[in-house]
Amino acid sequence: MKHTISVLVENEFGVLTRVAGLFSGRGFNIESLSVAPPLDPSVSRMTIVTRGDDRILEQINKQLNKLIDTIKVTDFTGQDYVEREMALVKVTAEEEARAEVLRIVDIFRAKVVDVTPRSYTLEVTGAPTKLDAVIDLLRPMGIKELVRSGPVVMGRGQ
């Protein structure tokens, strides 16, 4: 089962390798990882998407907590949270296909951030499932390049 884990760590030298090394060293997988400091620059927020059964997730949780640099670990699975990811998609857009791409942009409230006579570059934001849907629709038109940020998450306000 897929889990989205948010880890608050000390913004210290090498902390990313500690977390990444923990996953690789113990055979846990990382589907995506995004890292940046929040308001307080002395810490860093990592959002990790991983997979595993309950036993593996319990170990991931405990092992992350065991790192000296880890301040807090939150597994958002089963909780009420907002999840957003961004994708940049460079899609082939020539002649009549240009209008179709723009329709998709409109439907999914995406943005065109770069235009050439033969392509559009789109910025799509939303839940990862929404990004999957946009990408599926754009794929037949020819996706030249795709970059996804990996999701970031936040618990909903109480």
């Binding site: 030298f13 090498g14 390798t17 500690r18 090394g21 923990l22 060293g25 000296i68």
Partner: peptide
């Protein structure tokens, strides 16, 4: 050596 010993120490430090 910090990289090499990361997985065999409880913690390690490079003094900068």
């Amino acid at each position: 050596i910090i990289g090499i010993t990361r997985s065999i120490t409880k913690h390690n430090y490079l003094v900068q």
